[in-house]
């Protein structure tokens, strides 16, 4: 039996809003949360759109046209689309943050954000990330 461990903490920064980046961030986040880890995700630049209520990310560049096919293939192996992954993440206690500067630049208001998303700046997130054991940058 494993010795009692302190809670492992994970910080993830997402700076792109495409389907692949969105799914990567939440597949790692939901797995980490399922392993009993504490997860914090900072959404900045184009990643900000992912924590809005209308988020519906598309595959990048010319692959955009194949978004539906990607979604279908992932659903076939039990991995639901982004809105379902995000709902699961929030249920698992994953903490989501929105970059305040990106909100200003992209015209996203507090009421556009998903329930439970915390608005902060780089200093606020770095303060959280400084106490984590693992850091991922997805962009």
């Amino acid at each position: 039996m494993a010795e009692a461990k302190k809670v492992t903490k994970v910080a993830i920064v997402v700076s792109e809003g495409t389907f692949d980046k969105a799914m990567e961030s939440l597949m790692i986040a939901n797995t980490a949360a399922s392993m009993g880890m504490e997860v914090h995700i900072f959404h900045t630049f184009f990643g900000l759109k992912l924590v809005t209520k209308t988020a519906n990310p598309k595959a990048p560049g010319m692959y955009r046209l194949f978004t539906g096919m990607f979604k279908k293939k992932m659903a076939a192996v039990g991995v639901e689309g982004y809105p379902a992954q995000k709902k699961m993440a929030l249920e698992l206690g994953v903490k989501m943050y929105a970059c305040s500067t990106s909100m200003g630049v992209m015209g996203v208001k507090q009421e556009d954000l998903d329930e439970g998303v915390i608005v902060l700046g780089a200093a606020g997130f770095l303060n959280i990330a400084a106490d984590t054991d693992m850091q991922y940058f997805i962009g």
Binding site: M27, N30, T31, S34, M35, G36, A76, V77, G78, V79, M88
Partner: peptide, 14 residues
């Protein structure tokens, strides 16, 4: 969990 791929078996197990 047959037919399911990562991370679903782990999420369901947890």
């Amino acid at each position: 969990c047959k037919g399911l791929m990562c991370p679903m078996p782990i999420v369901k197990l947890a």
